[in-house]
Design a protein around this nucleic acid. Structure first.
Ligand SMILES: [Zn+2]
Ligand SMILES: [Zn+2]
Ligand SMILES: [Zn+2]
Ligand SMILES: [Zn+2]
Lengths: 166, 166
DNA sequence: GCCCGTCACGTAATAACATAACACACCAAA
DNA sequence: TTTGGTGTGTTATGTTATTACGTGACGGGC
């Protein structure tokens, strides 16, 4: 199991955490949002993994660092991050992941590997997404979409074939 | 709030419950599946509403009818129904809804009205769904997809306009 | 200075959702 | 008759999420 799969590819990870936090800092400055210590730490915690973390996982790490140890501490931080586009909730997993493309308004699609637990965030073309088609034909006005696919990532697919090459 | 919105349109509902149960009966016959009393009743309960019901809602109704009153009773019945295509779980709501198109293998998309809580099940074209496009370009193999949109249904949209016609 | 609104944070308690583990009944095959 | 599978029921527990309440920090009127 690859501990480091972003979009299922390897990369220099120590940089990307720091970079993402720095960018979040800037974005919050501009938008008048407060990236407070708990919130920043929560974002770091999410960024340290390329998989989804449960709220209680995040909470435990926050508590280790001297922050509050009760559920609302984590839920509030995660709420801030998701509301402002720095993180997403993966509904299928009841878990949270840092946004891979923060800043832009986007409708992400997630690819969840059930073998290695990696989660990749894919961009969708908002103009001809299938949900918009549905919305157009039914007259339903979409405010938020959940697009999540479970399956096997390319890495795990390759591993499977290596072991069992039929 | 319309108590009866299937695909957000009105229809004769007493019939459609009975019909759907009858068809589930036939399907189970053919497939060698046991549509036992709890399972059948759970399906009826879901069919009686065109919205998603929590497992504990279903459980309470089952208990009223003399079935077991502990969570596994509901979860097992719902598990049977979802595994065999008679119902779906709405991940966004942690709740369950009867399948509107049972029988066929399909990748449903759900439209969840946040005003009246109605949930409609839309069919998707499996061949050019956006998730397949993503899968093709990334090499990810999808086994299951979650497609859920939150927003406002046509009925509620009309009501809003009637009240506040800007 | 003080008052007050808002916001973030902390905590306790509880609600809501879900599963593990075990016992018993039933039925059909060996 | 025994055995194995499947379904149901129960107790207990685990996991995820929210409600309710209190405190401190900050900023704008007065
Ligand atoms: Zn990274
Ligand atoms: Zn994988
Ligand atoms: Zn109906
Ligand atoms: Zn509605």
């Amino acid at each position: 199991m690859d501990p480091n799969p972003i979009g299922f590819q390897k990369h220099d990870h120590s940089h990307c955490v720091a970079d993402a936090v720095a960018e979040a800092d800037r974005t919050c400055q501009k938008a008048g949002l407060q990236l407070t210590p708990v919130r920043k730490r929560a974002l770091e915690i999410l960024l340290e993994e390329h998989r989804a973390l449960g709220a209680y996982d995040v909470l435990a790490r926050l508590a280790e660092d001297g922050f509050g140890s009760q559920p609302p501490v984590a839920y509030r931080a995660l709420d801030f991050l998701t509301k402002n586009g720095f993180a997403h909730k993966i509904e299928r997993l009841n878990a949270f992941i840092a946004c891979a493309h923060p800043g832009d308004i986007h409708t992400p699609a997630f690819l969840i590997c059930t073998t290695c637990d990696a989660v990749a965030e894919a961009e969708t073309d908002p103009s001809h997404s299938l949900l918009n088609q549905i919305a157009d034909t039914t007259g339903f006005r979409i405010s938020r979409a959940v697009l999540e696919a479970e399956g096997t990532c390319p890495n795990c697919l390759a591993n499977d074939q290596a072991k069992d090459p039929k």
